[in-house]
C-alpha cells in the first residue's frame, strides 16, 4: 500500500494562524491571507529571512532603503511590538489592523498618541512637538523661522494642554483629536477595506471560508 507524502507548507518565522489573527483584528481570514502575500514580498526584498527589517520597511514606503525619516522610524518601532528590531507577520497584521477603516477610533487615537510620544514618557511634551515639526520641515520644501515654529508649538499647546501643566496627556490628546478630526486621517488606510479585492494578485486559495467564521 502506498503512502501520500504531503510537503509541509513552509511559513516565515513569526507566522501565526490567520484564523487566530482574524479573530483578534478587524480583518477577515481571507484578508489576513492576502496580507501574508504582501508580508512575504516586503520581508524578502533585501534580507530574505521572512522578517521585515527597517531597511525593507523604508524600501517599501519610499522605494529607497536608506531614506531616513523620523516618522517612518516611529511607525516601524510601534509595529515592532516585541522590540527585537524586526516586524514578524503577527506584528504586521495586528498593527495594520489599527489602520483599517472599520477599527474603533479609540484605538487609532491611542496609536497616534504613542507615535508622538517620542521619548515614551506617557506625555507629548513641547520639545518633542518642536522636534517633530522641525523634522517635517527638514523633509519638505516648507521653510519657517524658528520663531514661527515656536509660535505654532505654543499655540498648539495652548489649545491642547487643557490642564496647563506643560504636557499633553492621553485624555487631553483624545479631546484635541475630537475637536480636530483631521489629525486621524493618517490612521486610516482605505486599501485595507478589502485588500483581497484591491490586490487580486494576493488572493490565495483559502482553506477557510470567512462565512464559516
Amino acid at each position: 500500500m502506498g503512502c501520500v507524502c504531503v510537503k509541509p507548507v513552509k511559513h516565515t518565522p513569526g507566522y501565526e494562524d490567520p484564523v487566530i489573527l482574524a479573530s483578534e483584528t478587524t480583518f477577515t481570514v481571507s484578508e489576513v491571507e492576502a496580507l501574508y502575500e504582501l508580508f512575504k514580498k516586503i520581508s524578502h526584498s533585501i534580507i530574505k529571512d521572512g522578517l521585515i527589517h527597517k531597511e525593507e520597511f523604508q524600501l517599501a514606503l519610499f522605494r529607497n532603503s536608506n531614506k531616513k525619516n523620523l516618522f517612518a522610524d516611529r511607525v516601524f518601532d510601534l509595529f515592532d511590538a516585541k522590540r527585537n528590531g524586526v516586524i514578524d507577520f503577527g506584528e504586521f497584521v495586528r498593527s495594520l489592523s489599527i489602520f483599517h477603516p472599520d477599527t474603533e477610533k479609540t484605538e487609532k487615537i491611542s496609536f497616534a498618541f504613542r507615535l508622538y510620544d517620542l521619548r515614551h514618557t506617557g506625555f507629548i511634551e513641547p520639545d518633542e512637538l518642536k522636534e517633530m515639526v522641525l523634522a517635517l520641515l527638514n523633509e519638505s520644501d516648507l521653510c519657517l523661522s524658528d520663531d514661527v515654529v515656536q509660535q505654532i508649538v505654543d499655540k498648539t499647546f495652548a489649545e491642547a494642554d487643557k490642564k496647563g501643566d506643560g504636557k499633553i496627556d492621553p485624555d487631553e490628546w483624545k479631546e484635541f483629536v475630537v475637536q480636530n478630526p483631521s489629525l486621524l486621517k493618517n490612521m486610516t488606510l482605505p486599501y485595507l477595506k478589502d485588500i483581497t479585492m484591491a490586490f487580486p494578485s494576493f488572493v490565495m486559495k483559502s482553506e477557510v471560508n470567512d462565512d464559516e467564521m
Binding site: 516586503i42 517599501a60 520641515l137 491642547a160
Partner: peptide
C-alpha cells in the same frame, strides 16, 4: 499659517503607509 503643529507633522511621507501596498502590486 493657520495649522496646528500636529497638522504640519501629519504631512510627513513617513506616515503614508499606502506605499507598502502600491509598490507590491
Amino acid at each position: 499659517l493657520n495649522m496646528n503643529a500636529f497638522d504640519i507633522i501629519s504631512l510627513s511621507a513617513g506616515f503614508d503607509l499606502s506605499g507598502l501596498f502600491e509598490g507590491s502590486e
